[in-house]
């Protein structure tokens, strides 16, 4: 079991309110991602759930029990830190065994759980090494192993992949997703990378300045961002946000069109000159200037497109994919 509820949770550091009253429910077995720019309070929120920081007011419930004042050790949660936070003076085996030793798990049971975790994480050959002798990816797996053996109510991940290089990051992303499929345990995952959020989450919580901007499945956020902030944050490349006449034609203060929803046509409503064209093979990103709509309009054309710097293009947004926002930045349904 691992349902986590936050009711009117706030956090102040002195006079600064970093988390204004906030309500959120994370269901048992859910993979929930907190995403937002740096300083949005997502890590603080995770540390409040972990118990590493006190909440100023409100209630944190774990499986229906009030855990607001429970010390971290007693909450039954496991955490994987950005820096991995492995114990440098212990072997991998002892690192993984540490939480079980603290919980007083019998020796033979410890050995059994270490074996199965090591097998699942490809660590069997490294059990007697020190963390200092491992690569970044291996250390990350040890940290996950240490979390798994506790059989926690929920896993907390604090930007676990940001210290890895790009190739390793994609691999570890898959491993964590597979782990979730297998264990079906609640996971809360903090990241500033919206790609990680989109690919891994059952539920995404977008945060800004301690506020929840929107909660939903990845596709809900993609299809119907509730406001301009979410619209700009989710999706890559970023959604084009256009103000002025073009927006007024749609009875909105701002309209948003994702790059993949703009087609290069022979005779469209928008014209401009190609600035940089990024040829990825599978796609081509065109940065179009001089449309009079925005400084740059980004277009994602499928496949190889023979356009170069300086070419004039004509663009057509797909009408069914135009997002409309009012003057206060909220979505118009």
């Amino acid at each position: 079991m691992g349902q986590i509820t936050l009711e009117k949770v706030t956090k102040r550091f002195g006079d600064v309110e970093v988390i204004p009253p906030l309500d959120l429910t994370i269901e048992d077995g859910e993979f929930c991602v907190f995403v937002g720019p740096s300083g949005c309070g997502k890590s603080t929120l995770l540390r409040l759930i972990a118990g590493l920081e006190d909440i100023t007011s409100g209630v944190i419930g774990i499986d229906g029990n009030d855990a607001s004042r429970t010390p971290p050790a007693k909450r039954g949660l496991a955490m994987v830190f950005q820096s991995y936070a492995l114990y440098p003076h212990m072997s991998v085996r002892k690192n993984i065994a540490f939480p079980m030793k603290m919980a007083g798990v019998p020796q033979d049971e410890q050995a059994r759980r270490i074996d199965s975790a090591a097998k699942a994480l490809n660590l069997t050959d490294y059990l007697d090494r020190r963390p200092g002798q491992l690569s970044g990816g291996q250390r990350q797996r040890v940290a996950i192993g240490r979390a798994i053996v506790r059989e926690p109510a929920a896993f907390l991940f604090d930007e676990p992949l940001s210290n890895l290089d790009a190739a390793l990051r994609v691999g570890m992303r898959l491993e964590i997703s597979e782990l979730h499929e297998r264990l079906k345990t609640t996971m809360i995952y903090v990241t500033h990378d919206q790609v990680e959020a989109m690919t891994m989450a059952d539920k995404i919580v977008v945060l800004r300045a301690g506020h929840i901007e929107q909660v939903g499945t990845p596709l809900e956020l993609y299809r119907a961002p509730r406001n301009l902030f979410v619209a700009g944050f989710i999706g890559s490349p970023k959604m084009n946000l256009i103000e002025g006449d073009a927006a007024r034609q749609h009875d909105a203060a701002t309209i948003g069109v994702r790059p993949e929803h703009i087609d290069v046509v022979d005779d469209g409503p928008w014209q401009g000159k190609v600035g940089v064209a990024e040829h990825l093979g599978s796609d081509t990103f065109l940065h179009v200037h001089g449309t009079g709509l925005a400084d740059i309009v980004t277009v994602r054309a499928t496949g190889e497109v023979g356009l170069r710097h300086g070419d004039t293009v004509s663009l057509a947004p797909r009408a069914e994919h135009i997002h409309r926002f009012d003057a206060s930045g909220l979505r118009i349904a």
Binding site: L52, P72, M102, R146
Partner: peptide, 8 residues
Amino acid sequence: EASRMDGA
């Protein structure tokens, strides 16, 4: 902090 999470 990790040790605290681990139940120490």
